[in-house]
Design a protein around this nucleic acid. Sequence first.
DNA 1: GGAACATCTCAGGCTGTGGTGACACAGTTG
DNA 2: CAACTGTGTCACCACAGCCTGAGATGTTCC
Lengths: 107, 107
Amino acid sequence: MDLPVLPELRFHIAAPDVADAAAIAAVVGDPVRAGILALLGSGPHCVCEMAAALGERQNNVSNHLARLRQAGLVRASRHRVDARWVYYERDDAACAAALDRLGRLLR
Amino acid sequence: MDLPVLPELRFHIAAPDVADAAAIAAVVGDPVRAGILALLGSGPHCVCEMAAALGERQNNVSNHLARLRQAGLVRASRHRVDARWVYYERDDAACAAALDRLGRLLR
DNA sequence: GGAACATCTCAGGCTGTGGTGACACAGTTG
DNA sequence: CAACTGTGTCACCACAGCCTGAGATGTTCC
């Protein structure tokens, strides 16, 4: 590790602005929401499909989907034939932007 | 959105394994820990420097550093001249692996 | 219209987690 | 040795977040 030769304390360092990056990671940092994002990586799915695949109750999945929607990571639209089904898909641009923000923190 | 023409429910989908990715995001998804990682992006720092920069108490920063250490994202070593100071640096390989894992979820 | 269905919303309970204070530990200085 | 400094650990408390149940909303079918 490359350290200063003498222990010179550097107290002038500005606090980095990481609120957005931490918020993004907090959204992804839940097993159910991460599972939803993984499922949506292979195309759109409706709520009941994801609830079954994840072994979670439907309203719980719906709650997490609301958080993901609020974060802009997913979009919702109703099925054209049977509009009772709500299909979700990832917002690829938003996900790429989120990953880029995390990359500026970890790279 | 590319949906199935008829609403054919696909209940055979396997639950994706996202426990590790969610755990990584949960570690990063705290403002203090994200701030620590951002500070360590510009080289090693000792605990009191980071506590001052983040406006957090020293033992609180130490607690978060323990979580980051447990996740393998940072390393600690004592200063050669004055071994009271503990300097932390990022584990670049581990951070790259963590980012890669998040990329497989968001890309 | 009414019944059935998929989904959404939200208050309430509960658990996990962050911040704090007190103390322990390691190292330096005199 | 004792005093001091920087850091680590841990119990405790408060708060935020997750899960659940009940009801509401939007849609289709009879």
